[in-house]
Each structure stands twice: as C-alpha cells, then as structure tokens.
C-alpha cells in the first residue's frame, strides 16, 4: 500500500526570535493539510497566525521542527533552495498587494514565470492573459497598479500568485484591506481555487465570515493550535 504524503506537513514547528528576552512566535505546531483543502487560520492578534504562515511558506525558517511541502523535507535546505521551492510551488497573497509599480498589470503577473523560465515569452504572456481573464481583469492588463482599485489590485496579486501554477496558496489577511463586496469576491476566488483546481489554500484572517466560509479552521492562541475544526 503506497502512502501518499500530505501536501503540507508541519511537525513540532517552533520559532523563537533570538533576543535578550527570546520571543516565541509559534510553539510546537503539528499540522497536516491535504491537497485541495481550504484552511483558514484565525486567532487573536499576536497569536502567531502570520508567523506560522511565513514558516509554512518558507519565508522564515523554524528554530526547530520539520516542514514538508509536497513531500520535500525543507529543514536544512539553503536559502536558494527554499527560494526555488517558493518559486515553483507556493503562491503568496498579502494584505497589501505589493505589485511592482514600474510594471503593468500583466507584466507583474508575468514576473514569477519569467524568473522560473519554464515557458517561452509568448506562452508566458498568453498564460498571464488567461489568469487575468479568469479573475475578470482582462481589460486592465495594460494599466499600471496605481490606476487600479484596491479590489482589482488584490485580484492581480492573486493572478501573480497563481502564475507558476503553485500547489499551495498562502494568503495573509488577503481581504484585510478590502470593502465587504470585494472581500466576498476574493473569498469566492480562493474557494474556487481549492474546489475546482484542487489547490491547497491556507488563509490567515481575522474576519469571522471568511473563516466560516472555509472547510477547516485552525484557531491559534499564544503560538499554538487551540482548535482545529473541520466542517
């Protein structure tokens, strides 16, 4: 019987910020997320939601513990190897869109693909166009980010996160800066990505409605998992 590893697996992950008085961000986290799951992470501020997300996204390195992504053990890997995993397997969406202001919408979406370099320029442009179309942003493709509304920018940021066809989408308060209408749209997009495309989505949020709309909710308190509920 072949055992398929889960898409994301955290084993005893602890992150302590070294300081005169060391700060424990997350403590002894065990978390298993299967392919296609849509998980929300909630908790009071300072509970370590974002810290956990950055650790799972390999932006930060745990002080102890192991993280497996798509079957790859990431502990002990160098910064360049972690960057390569981020590039190919992980898409980030943050509260702020972080689009590069010098580039047009479509160029922003093309950046990760160009860095990966797996496709030709023509294919990259076609795929970026298709991603924007899926998010109903085709007509904004040639605009600059500062000509877009907040909701539009966040959709571009999602398209960019999807650029290299990642297996894992990590979102840090993706609706935190949006009005309720745009917030609903973004939530729906994430739900679709998980449901229809089988991607794994983990979203940190403090919005009750967002958390309720996900299949699974992980509730953090003081850096460890207090509740892990599936619906």
């Amino acid at each position: 019987m072949s055992v398929e590893r889960p898409l994301l697996e955290a084993r005893g992950v602890t992150r302590i910020l070294p300081a005169i008085v060391p700060v424990t961000l997350v403590h002894d986290i065990d978390l298993v997320v299967e392919k296609g799951e849509f998980v929300s992470v909630t908790g009071p501020s300072g509970s370590g939601k974002s810290s956990l997300l950055y650790l799972l996204g390999l932006l930060d390195v745990p002080t102890s513990g192991e993280i497996f992504i798509d079957g790859i053990a990431t502990s002990g890997l160098g910064a360049d190897a972690l960057a390569a995993i981020r590039l190919a397997k992980i898409g980030f969406v943050f509260q702020f869109h972080f689009l590069l202001p010098e580039f047009t919408v479509i160029e922003n979406v093309m950046l990760p693909m160009r860095r990966l370099g797996a496709l030709t320029m023509d294919d990259i442009r076609t795929r970026a166009g298709a991603l924007l179309k899926d998010l109903d942003m085709s007509d904004q493709a040639e605009k600059r980010p500062d000509q877009l509304s907040g909701g539009q920018r966040q959709r571009v940021a999602i398209a960019r996160a999807l650029a290299n066809d990642p297996v894992l989408i990590l979102a840090d308060e993706p609706t935190g800066n949006l009005d309720s209408r745009n917030s609903k749209i973004v939530q729906e997009i994430f739900a679709q990505l998980a449901r229809e495309q089988g991607r794994t989505v983990i979203a940190v949020t403090h919005e009750e409605s967002f958390a309720r709309s996900t299949q699974r909710n992980v509730y953090l308190v003081d850096g460890h998992i207090a509740r892990d509920e599936r619906r």
Binding site: G57, A79, R86, L87, F92, F94, F98, R160, N164
Partner: peptide, 16 residues
C-alpha cells in the same frame, strides 16, 4: 524594500 521583499517571496533568490 517592499518590492525586494515581494520579489523574494515570489521566489527570487538573495543573489538575484
């Protein structure tokens, strides 16, 4: 700095 951070989160290496 923000753009650098986002490029890194995208998968650009430090050396890039």
């Amino acid at each position: 700095r923000r753009d650098i951070a986002i490029l890194m989160s995208m998968g650009f290496r430090s050396v890039d």
